[in-house]
Every structure is written in structure tokens, then in C-alpha cells.
Design a binder for these strands. Structure first.
Lengths: 208, 208
DNA sequence: GTCGCGATTTGAACATCGTTCACTGATCCC
DNA sequence: GGGATCAGTGAACGATGTTCAAATCGCGAC
């Protein structure tokens, strides 16, 4: 029953990740069963373990591909000239993306590896790549000697946007629909950046 | 083998939630096994199901108690006079809390009920209670006719703080330790609120 | 053309999971 | 004292992730 591989080993890997993504998008983490996945790939459960160490590794691969897709979307966007518009554009891409793949997106954020297991480096690298993209767009707003401040602002904005998307996808922000999450994001970016600009003028004697 | 209840039925409920919290804090969601929980409570697995519909309900009760503890901590805090300080105080309580119970906190955010199941109302109510506390502290910053803006700002700040805590606890913010998450939070609150104040002066002709 | 090596896939088997339910026996009411 | 009641039980069920000895066939050697 076993050809010498009817499709290159990498192709099999791809088919498994494809099938896993479809299952995750449709039924969430609980739906991703070794047997269900194997059936969709038309192989036996054991075969999965010839290609991946365990199901978590399959999930990690789905997540990685999702992050790549987001990165690509950001890279494809026509770059906006003004930092404010550039950051806003990124934030909205992020928001749209999280609502386009809500199930997969939640899994990306929620999926915690068992006890000792740490997130693999190649996974963390993709996250900080995104962070770097925000940072790059913010640098023009800061003086040459203020890279530290730019890095800080990038992290604050990224985390803030992420928080809004996260709560919005999970439907945990009272009275905030997917529609109005966009309003929240605009407000966060615009108000926060306005706050940065307002910091430059000389301090008034009144404030500490 | 079964007395007519050796401890009131509510007491049993409490003991189960206690034990569940201990297990969750120590071993995470994966560690919470019906059998492990039963052993800790010194009863049989079946008994758990006389008191709770399933393990998810137990987890929800742990989460609820956690939210209550956070609410109490916020309520106990000596109220700060200036809105800025009050909001900052809340945000730092939130941050400290999430790092004091990192495992439980992650579970609270990550724990997704199976497919159709929606978060129970009593659970959502506790979340929006917290949101209301932020809102109450922000109201003084806005003119009487601007309650909508205050509500918006409350949601943005809450989501932003939540995002920082969430990424920080999950260790997903590159180069951001638990220590420096406090810096991010301060920056978010201060800069965002400065941005709100900066909005009040009449618009300059230059800006769209 | 055929043969056999070895890479590849298989699926039965294992331990463990959440959950159920027929049963037990201590307790209360009469 | 003697049912009736019901909290508590734990064996049993189906499904889970994972393993591994065995089965299978592609392919190079002759």
C-alpha cells in the first residue's frame, strides 16, 4: 500500500498544512483531529507523524503561513508618504486580516504550546518582522537621536492595535462591532501620534 | 459510600473551583483533567458532574473569580484625583495583576468555548464592568456633550492596555520584558491622553 | 526480465481523555 | 424501625494523540 512516495515529501507536507488550515478555519482547534486530518489528506494517521513531530507542529506551520500572508499583504500595499497614513494603513491591513480569518487569527494568538515547549525561533522571527515594519514607518517621525523612542512607539502602537483586533475578533469589547473596531483603530493611531507630536513643544511650567 | 453530603453543595462547588484554580495556575489548561481534579478534591470524577455540567464550566468559574479579584483590587485602590493618574493607576493594576497570575490570565483570554457555545452573560458582564470603571475615570476629561468620545477613549485605552499585557504575558513582544511592559503602558496612557488634550485647541488651517 | 533492498505508508494497539449512568449506602422522615 | 431519597461512586464508552512492527511497492542491480 505504499509507493515510494507518490508526491515528493515536501508536497505531502504542503498537503497536510493545506488540509489542517481548512479544518482549523472551519472547526477551530478542537476540530483538528489526527484522524480527521489524515482522512482529508487521504492517508493514515501514522503518516502524519512521518512528516511532523506532532499536531502542534502542524498548527505552527499553519500559523507561519498565515503570518507570511499578512507580511505579503503589508509589503504589497502602496506605501503612504506621511508616517501617520503609513501606520494607519498598516493597522487597517492588520484589522482587515484578523477579521478575514477570524478563526485562524484567534488560533494564532491563543494557541499555547504545552508546558515546557517554547515558541520556535522561526515563529518569533516572523512576529518581530511585522514589528519592524511598523518601526520603519515611524522612524521619520523622530529625530535621528531618538531611535529608542521610535522603537517604544512602534511597540505601543503594535500592541494597541493588536489588543483592539484581539478583543474585537473574540467579541469581548462591549458594544464594539467589527465595523466600529475600525473607528477604534483610527482613533488610537491618530490620537497617539498626535500625542507624540504634542510632546515636542517646550514644556509648559505647569506640567510636572 | 455516599453520605448525604458531608459539606453543603455550595461548599463542594467552592472546593472544586479552588482545586481547579490551583491546577490551572500550576499546569495550565492541559493539566486540568477530570481525574486529576477529582483526586485533588478527594472525590470521584463522576461527582464533578453532579455540580458542574462539564470541565469548561469549572474553568469559567475560575475565570469569574479571577475577574472579581481584579475588580476588587481596582475598587480598593485609593482613587487618584487627576484623570490621567486615575487611568494610569488602573492600567498598572491591570498589568500587575496579569503578571501576578500569568497562567490564569492567559487562560482567561485564550480559553475558547467549543463551537456553538457563547460566553455566558454573567461572564461578559464582569468584563464590561471593568470597562465601565475605565470609562468613569475618563469622563472628567470630556465636556458634558462628549460622552460618546469618552466611551470611545475608554475602549481604545482598555484594548490598548490589554494588548500590551497580553503580548507581554505571552512573551510575544520582541525585546519587551515584564519590567518594560510598565514603560509601554505609561507611554500609551500618557501619550494617548496628551493626544486627546491636544485635539481641543482650534484646528490649524494646515491640517485636513 | 527479475529480483531484492529499503524507503514509505499503514493501521492496530496503548494510554489517557471527557463524560455517562446504573448502582450504593448513608441519611431523613414518618 | 423502615422505606424513600439522593449525594456520591467508579466501571465503562467512545474518541483522543501517538507509536511501531509489519506490509507494501518503486527502483537500481544484474
Amino acid at each position: 500500500m505504499a509507493r515510494r512516495s507518490k508526491h515528493g515529501p515536501d508536497a505531502l507536507k504542503g498537503m497536510i498544512v493545506d488540509a489542517a488550515e481548512a479544518i482549523l478555519a472551519a472547526d477551530g482547534l478542537d476540530g483538528l483531529t489526527a484522524r480527521a486530518l489524515a482522512e482529508r489528506v487521504a492517508c493514515s494517521p501514522g503518516t502524519l507523524y512521518n512528516v511532523f513531530a506532532n499536531l502542534d507542529e502542524v498548527v505552527l506551520n499553519v500559523e507561519a503561513r498565515l503570518l507570511d500572508r499578512l507580511s505579503a499583504r503589508i509589503a504589497d500595499a502602496r506605501p503612504e508618504a506621511r508616517p501617520r497614513d503609513a501606520v494607519l494603513q498598516m493597522a487597517e491591513i492588520y484589522l482587515d486580516f484578523s477579521h478575514e480569518f477570524p478563526r485562524l487569527w484567534s488560533i494564532l494568538l491563543e494557541h499555547a504550546l504545552p508546558a515546557g515547549q517554547a515558541t520556535p525561533d522561526w515563529h518569533r522571527a516572523r512576529l518581530s518582522e511585522l514589528l519592524g515594519a511598523v518601526e520603519a514607518r515611524l522612524v521619520p517621525m523622530f529625530a535621528p537621536g531618538q531611535q529608542t523612542e521610535a522603537a517604544l512607539a512602534a511597540r505601543v502602537l503594535w500592541a494597541g492595535v493588536h489588543g483592539i483586533c484581539s478583543l474585537s475578533v473574540a467579541d469581548k469589547l462591549t458594544n464594539v462591532t467589527a465595523q466600529s473596531a475600525r473607528v477604534l483603530i483610527r482613533d488610537l493611531v491618530e490620537t497617539y501620534l498626535r500625542g507624540i507630536e504634542a510632546r515636542r513643544p517646550p514644556l509648559l511650567p505647569g506640567s510636572a
